[in-house]
């Protein structure tokens, strides 16, 4: 039934274009998978994990950014029913709130990120980019994962960090020499490893496989290998990580990370950075001049990635840096 005055639904501001395409024909009942302050994860009727992010979150694969400040005010909980219908998603709420929470996807801006190509970069550029990112990480990166244990950390953290480094070395050695068996062992040594909600090993793999998935990469055998491995050994990590890794293997990662890669590849973070925060009066989109990161721009972009999660950003960047270095190494001097 149409509400004559306008349906009280929450507009989705933007969303992963592929996901929006999928939703346009998706009908049925799913459920709320997990609820965080700024993100709610849903399971679609087909069991795919998708994310509803709050206003101001960057675009990301399988993610819709909705016009809410935070989800904490909506009394959602894991297991609540979700109805997928044309143009909207309805989330059941606690009985006290009577009505379902309706998200209108119709007006959402579709985010269709294009992965930048590494092919045209001159020799040495990848290494320089990697060094620059690594430098910023060393100064600002959070410890406790790939970047090393925190000072005074207990034996458990130390052991995890050791295991992360062992896995990383094994994986990089496998990729470097093209030995599939070693590469596979390396992936399995990292998958699901690490403290916190998103295992650091998975974040590292995400950064690494992103580089491998970019057009013109010499590591193009790695994404299919990782995908195959996830298909059979996906139980070794969390559902969230599994979704993130599968997308990254196709060159699809959250906009902050993709923006950084674009900046490194051609000095222009096209379509990257935090998503538009609704009509922002008076600020016309600033034209970014092409041709190499401006002073401070790389710094800002890396800091944006570092801000992801508690230590996830640092681990993602570790993977990215390792991938860029490996790429440079495999290209060899021209």
């Amino acid at each position: 039934m149409e509400d004559p005055i306008g349906a009280p639904s929450i507009p989705v501001l933007s969303g992963d274009g592929r996901l929006l395409d999928l939703l346009s024909s998706l009908r049925g009942t799913g459920s709320v998978h997990s609820v965080f302050t700024r993100v709610v994860n849903l399971l679609t009727p087909g069991g795919t994990l998708i994310a509803l992010a709050a206003r101001g979150s960057g675009d990301a694969p399988r993610t819709l950014v909705a016009d809410v400040a935070a989800w904490s005010a909506y009394q959602l909980g894991a297991g609540l029913g979700v109805t997928f219908a044309t143009g909207n998603i309805a989330l059941d709420r606690s009985p006290a709130l009577r009505r379902p929470l309706r998200l209108a996807t119709a007006g959402a801006r579709a985010w269709r990120p294009a992965a930048p190509s590494l092919a045209p970069l001159p020799p040495g550029a990848l290494a320089r980019a990697a060094d620059a990112v690594a430098r910023i990480c060393r100064v600002h990166g959070p410890l406790g994962g790939m970047l090393g244990a925190r000072p005074g950390a207990g034996p458990m953290e130390a052991a995890v960090v050791r295991a992360l480094h062992t896995g990383r070395d094994l994986l990089l050695a496998g990729l470097r020499t093209g030995e599939e068996e070693r590469t596979r062992d390396g992936v399995l040594a990292l998958l699901g490893l690490g403290p916190g909600l998103t295992p650091a090993g998975d974040d590292f793999l995400t950064g690494l496989v992103l580089v491998a998935a970019l057009p013109g990469s010499r590591l193009d055998g790695f994404p299919p290998l990782l995908r195959d491995l996830l298909a059979v050994r996906g139980d070794r990590t969390t559902a969230l990580s599994l979704a993130t890794l599968s997308e990254a293997a196709e060159g699809r990662v959250r906009s902050e990370l993709l923006g950084l890669v674009a900046l490194l590849a051609h000095g222009n973070p096209t379509g990257a950075g935090p998503a538009a925060t609704g009509p922002r009066p008076g600020t016309a989109p600033a034209a970014t001049p092409g041709g190499g990161p401006r002073p401070g721009e790389l710094h800002a972009s890396v800091r944006e990635v570092l801000a992801i999660g508690h230590s996830s950003g640092g681990d993602l960047l570790s993977g990215l840096v390792a991938g860029l270095r490996l790429e440079e190494e495999l290209r060899g001097p021209l």
Partner: peptide, 19 residues
Amino acid sequence: EQAFTAMGTEMNKGVLENL
């Protein structure tokens, strides 16, 4: 003495087992 939070994945359990 020490406290640690992590997801219950194979690898994390492996590290704990070794310790």
